[in-house]
Amino acid sequence: MDLIRFYVRKLFTVLKNEVIVLPSRVVVVVFFLFLLLLPVFTNNQYTLRIFTLTCIFAILAASWDLLSGFTGQINFGHALFFGVGAYAAAMSNLHVHLPPWASIPLGGLVAVLAGLIIGIPCLRLRGTYLALTTLAFPIILMGFVFAFPDLTGGELGISGIERIARSRVTNYYIVAGLMFGLCTIMWKITDSNTGIIFHAIREDELAVRASGVNTTRYKLLAFCLSGFFAGIAGGLYAHFMRIAGPSTLEVSMSFLVVIWAVFGGVATIYGPVGAVFILFPLLEFLRFWQEYRTLMFACVLIVILLYMPDGLFPWLRDKIETECPRCKIRNIATRTVCRVCSASLE
């Protein structure tokens, strides 16, 4: 009993001293509670479907940010990892009868392999050249899909895949839980020493190499990690939609990921995740105005990027929080002195 009381008291202390002091952390807690309690307030299958797909695409967008936002390896063909993950999960489920809990991680691992295959020839390229080369890979894979229709289902794709779970609520909780877990892992990676090297490679690769770091290895690692998370998203998508088709490899899918990440703010992880949670349901909400749905969506994007070029979430965060010039700790914008070192924030 004392132990429980201790942990409850610790929880309150953490909440009081670490969470409530910063609006961004409060938002994360509220967001977590919202996702956790959503099925309690609505049992609507359509709503749960939208949020399940939102969670899947959030993993995908965050995985792009890990590679392109943090490491600066601009990838315009991220649909490759997603498609590879989807096809690998679908094929292993349909042909080898692996259950979803095995086929989805397998999809992630096959996508890691795809990351290696792309990463190795692309290591010599930078900037626009890298972006254009990566753009070609999903198109190449699509050619492979059409060339071996007996294996890949051709233009129809592979259908009749097993569901993740029979109930929509269970599906939702599994996907939402995985989204939280995987995004936290990605965020932790970017906050680790490896993440710092990723950052450094983006800012000045030559300087990093001059410091004795094997940048090739780290760039390959970024490709593989990003591929793994995107592959997991692909596997989840295939099992949720019960189809893995050429549409998972389409150029539009690659660009959608870039749009989400840029809208939310690159090199943040939370930015692309938040962007998907705004843009994907927004596109559904705009169904009431079908003829102008895409136009309205484009207008929202343009307005946001015009006034918030670094993305929506870094802009919002800068409005509600300030960074202490001395200790670099973030404080709520209304404070005049830092909550840690008492330095003046004005």
């Binding site: 609507n44 359509y46 939208i50 233009e155 169904r287």
Partner: peptide
Amino acid sequence: ITDATNAMERLITNDKVDFIVGGFRTEAVL
């Protein structure tokens, strides 16, 4: 394709239609 499946789910769950007609691209219709 995702949009197509969402539209179908919305028709059934929110609009509560009794029957459905239409569909065009096989990869979406499946």
